[in-house]
Design a binder for these strands. Structure first.
Length: 867
RNA sequence: GCGGAAGUGGUGAAAUGGCAAACACACCAGCCUUAGGAGCUGGCGCCUGAAAAGGCUUGCGGGUUCAAGUCCCGCCUUCCGCACCA
């Protein structure tokens, strides 16, 4: 036996030794071809942005995935566990500005640095299929997909209001705007500008993206809910209100509007149908989910940007000024991020519209709470049955007419009444119908008479992919003076991003300032053409990178469909919840497009999704400005990679936020030291048993130690399959080690047979391997284990050995714990009851009392109900 | 406002409706020593008590149950997402 005093756990020495060996064996983590005969398992962690430094969030994310990948290898799966770099994006340009380093150089340098960190952490990645999104061999396929989508009509160009960050000098997606500020610059307000933009028609798949969520039961409910809300499906009706032709000049709008309602409102309903007036004339289309309340519509409200408003304003300078003020105020509020807090207000236009169902004349207003980019940008206002309309009508004295009577509490008919639990009143021939019936009939009537239809609308918008930036995938289109918009032919791909470029802080696209890039020949007519200078949103890169991992060196296609068919869907995807909506919805969209192109067969990219919690320090997100950043390099230098990784798994369940405490890392490192000394101390005994030595029945120490071992195996194996509470897995390993250490004297005295020692120590090391792979590799070798620990079979729990033969049963009297009795495991209720009643403490407390009831839960508890 | 998650010792946390606080961190006491950021042993929820012992305890208030941290109802707090979505 080695002298324990001389044994010191030196993580640096052990880890470096094994990292060197692994580096010499690049095939170690390589995925095997489909023909290998093993079941496949694709485990994927979200790829990092190459900022130059891994942070603790990465360490945690990749420690989780690495543990899973390693365990699956040990369980005999063909594992694909790749890694890559989300390498396009703004920081590279910002760095270029700051340090005068070209983005490409800066990015590649960062990648090299982070790859070293990954390697130093002992991550089991298959680098043979590394993907770097900023290289032409990757981004050419972004362009290729863009062209395929263009052919399928999924790409279009539209002038639209965009969020503009003056700091980035670029367009932001809605989702990149946080509280009215840029997501990267939370002190910079986003402005609204009008630009020609490229869009991907993700809304084409809105329904499928929504329905597909039902089947994604391996995804967290939270993520599914967020996506559901993001898609925002809404069933309703579009209805045309007819525009009354008599245009009138400006006047006292408020009082006039009010008087009109009073006289009009009492008019017999339905006498003046849509056929009588204005069927052919101009209309205002509104969207409503409550067409059943249409007889209560006492005004029509338009968004300030509505085209009709512009028309009205053209002839009415006063209105024009008011609307412009409204738009300016809205814009200011949006930029300040307190839209929503803004008070509802509006202006009557002096024009009137006719309710298509009864011809009732209602005033047309412009209101600041109507959104141009949702629905039709116009609503019918029903103050009696909508809270916002109620607030507005109250403020301006617009009539509030109840047309739905509640089914319950009819007396307490407090307005606004917004529930659909009611029947129609004041609604002509529709009186008495339930809301649902009325909606149905009113829709049919509208369709029949040609002034409306049932309609489903979505909150989800098409994906604006244009960016006026340099460091991104060039959009493969050109503008020919003669032919117009022309797609770059496949044969000319990739459209290369020029290397020589001056990065400045000026607005507009940097590519526009590179004549060699911009000036080109039209592939159709050969004449002069200008290349599109927008580049693609980096979410494009991350929407399909995981397919490329299956075939990353393919020069003929984005990937080989046969390979994708084998590996997809991803069995387990792991990443931060901050990507719950954007990245994950775009990825799902891309998968569906690829399926429709015939490239893949799966409908969804990932079967299971896991979102890990954040890593905090002192209860706050780590950030440079707070000065609370913990560097992985420092942790590795002090405690070793194994300790840093294992702490990340031990400190909290993986789905919860984790507060990084260095003392905790030190504790894990001390624990690994105990394991190291224990295993090394008895390794010679274990090695003695090598070969065919069998384990005999065993003495009590052996039985007890093996029991603990097999219980631990069972617990950890189960956790990998279900809950993923790796914190309790590590705790279980600690308990096992504590038990072994407690038996140190017996082990030293040779009371435990060598084959048992071998079983105990080898199994311990195997259980440790997913969490502390470097130490496990060393100890596996010391124990004389065969081959790489990575491919050693995962230990099997023998239930017969794990079983306790005596258990403790708590005894309660009236639900209060009184005593504990020991019985043989598996005892029946009668035996347990007898043991409980025989207990001295129990007898003392029940003496002379009436036993009303005895509840025995075998293996669990006894509860005596005593009066 | 709407939706979701969470609230347990000094700290991170554990607990298929069945002994609350496993496993650690910190702290306290002791041992060892070629003095280390080492190792080993023991203690450690709160209150009363010298002790023995007893009582209390999972954000608050109710409820279901023989039995509730766990299930149900209401409330409070924190965090996250959405937010004038017609």
């Amino acid at each position: 036996m080695a002298d324990e005093k001389e044994l010191r756990y030196e993580p640096a020495a052990i880890e470096e030794k094994w990292l060197e060996r692994w580096a010499a064996d690049p095939k170690l983590y390589a995925a095997e071809p489909a023909t290998c005969g093993k079941p496949k398992y694709y485990v994927l962690e979200m790829l990092p942005y190459p900022s130059g430094q891994l942070h603790m969030g990465h360490v945690r994310n990749y420690a989780i995935g690495d543990a899973l990948a390693r365990q699956m290898w040990m369980r005999g799966y063909n594992v694909l566990h790749p890694m890559g770099w989300d390498a396009f994006g703004l920081p590279a340009e910002n760095a270029a500005l700051k340090n005068n380093t070209p983005p490409r150089e800066w990015t590649l340098k960062n990648i090299a640095a982070m790859k070293r960190q990954f390697t130093r952490l002992g991550m089991a990645f298959d680098w043979a299929n590394e993907v770097t999104t900023c290289l032409p061999e990757y981004y050419r396929w972004n362009q290729w997909f863009f062209l395929r989508m263009f052919e399928k009509g999924l790409v279009y160009r539209k002038k639209s209001k965009v969020n503009w960050c003056p700091q980035c000098a670029t367009v932001l997606a809605n989702e990149q705007v946080v509280d009215g500020c840029c997501w990267r610059h939370d002190d910079t307000r986003v402005e609204q500008r009008d630009l020609e933009q490229w869009f991907l028609r993700i809304t084409h798949y809105a329904e499928e993206l929504l329905d597909g969520l039902e089947k994604l039961d391996g995804w967290p409910e939270k993520v599914r809910t967020m996506q559901r809300n993001w898609i925002g499906r809404s069933e309703g009706t579009e209805v045309d209100f007819f525009l009354e032709e008599s245009h009138q000049g400006p006047r006292d709008q408020e009082t006039k509007g009010r008087r009109d309602q009073e006289t009009q409102g009492r008019r017999d309903q339905g006498t003046k149908g849509p056929r009588d007036q204005g069927t052919e004339g101009p209309r205002i289309r509104v969207f409503t989910t409550r067409v059943d309340t249409i007889f209560g519509a006492t005004s029509v409200q338009l968004a300030p940007e509505h085209p009709l408003v512009r028309e009205f304003a053209a002839a009415n300078p006063e209105l024009k000024a008011q609307v412009e003020a409204m738009i300016a105020q809205q814009k200011a509020a949006k930029e300040a991020g307190d839209i929503g807090a803004i008070e509802k207000h509006g202006v009557a236009t002096g024009h009137f519209a006719l309710n298509p169902y009864n011809g009732e004349r209602v005033p047309i207003w412009v209101a600041n709470y109507i959104l141009m980019d949702y629905g039709t940008g116009a609503i019918m206002s029903v103050p009696a049955h909508d809270e916002r309309d109620f607030e507005f009508a109250t403020k301006y004295g617009i009539e509030i007419r109840q047309v739905i009577k509640p089914l319950q509490n009819e007396d307490a008919a407090k307005l606004p009444f917004c529930s659909e639990e009611g029947v129609l009143v004041n609604s002509g021939t529709y009186d008495g119908l339930t809301c649902a019936e009325a909606q149905n009939q009113l829709q049919k009537a509208a369709a029949r008479k040609g002034f409306g239809e049932a309609k489903v609308i979505y909150r989800l918008k098409d994906w604006g992919v244009s960016r006026q930036r340099y460091w991104g995938t060039p959009i493969p289109m050109m503008h020919c003076e003669r032919c117009g918009l022309v797609a770059v032919p496949d044969a000319q791909l990739p459209v290369l991003l020029p290397d020589q470029i001056e990065i400045t802080q000026q607005g507009g696209s940097p590519l526009g300032r590179v004549p060699e890039f911009v000036n080109t020949a039209c592939p159709q007519c050969g004449g002069a053409a200008r290349r599109e200078t927008d580049t693609m949103d980096t979410f494009v890169d991350s929407s399909w990178y995981f397919y490329r991992y299956t075939d990353a060196r393919n020069g003929e296609a984005p990937f080989d469909s046969a390979k994708a068919r084998y590996w997809f869907p991803i069995d387990q995807y792991i990443g931060g919840v901050e990507h719950a909506i954007l990245h994950l919805i775009y990825s799902r969209f891309w998968t569906k497009v690829m399926r429709d192109l015939g490239l893949v067969e799966n409908d969804e990219p990932a079967r299971r999704l896991f979102t890990q919690g954040m890593v905090l320090k002192d209860g706050a997100k780590m950030s440079k400005s707070k000065g609370n950043v913990v560097s992985p390099d420092e942790m590795i230098a002090r405690y070793g990679a194994d300790a840093a990784r294992m702490y990340a798994l031990f400190a909290a369940p993986p789905d919860r936020d984790l507060d990084w405490q260095e003392d905790g890392v030190a504790g894990v490192s001390r624990f690994l030291g105990r394991v190291y000394r224990l295993v090394v101390k008895y390794a010679p005994v274990a090695r003695m048993a090598a070969g065919s030595a069998t384990i005999s029945a065993g003495n009590p120490v052996e039985v007890q130690l093996r029991r603990k071992l097999h219980q631990t195996i069972a617990k950890i194996t189960q956790d990998f399959e279900g809950r993923w509470h790796f914190n309790t897995c590590v705790a279980a390993i600690m308990e096992l080690v504590n038990e072994l250490q407690g038996a140190d004297g017996r082990l030293a005295a040779g009371e435990v047979a060598a084959p048992v020692v071998r079983e105990l120590l080898q199994s311990l090391v195997l259980l440790l391997a997913p969490f502390a792979p470097l130490l496990a590799a060393e100890l596996w070798e010391q124990l004389g284990g065969e081959g790489a620990v990575l491919h050693a079979p995962w230990p099997q729990s023998d239930p017969a050995l794990a079983k306790e033969d005596e258990i403790e049963i708590p005894v309660q009297i009236n639900g209060k714990l009184v005593s504990v009795v020991r019985v043989a495991a598996g005892s029946d209720a009668k035996t347990i009851e007898a043991a409980a009643l025989a207990d001295a403490k129990v007898q003392a407390r029940t003496a002379g009392k009436n036993m009303a009831k005895v509840i025995v839960v075998p293996g669990r508890t006894v509860n005596l109900v005593v009066k």
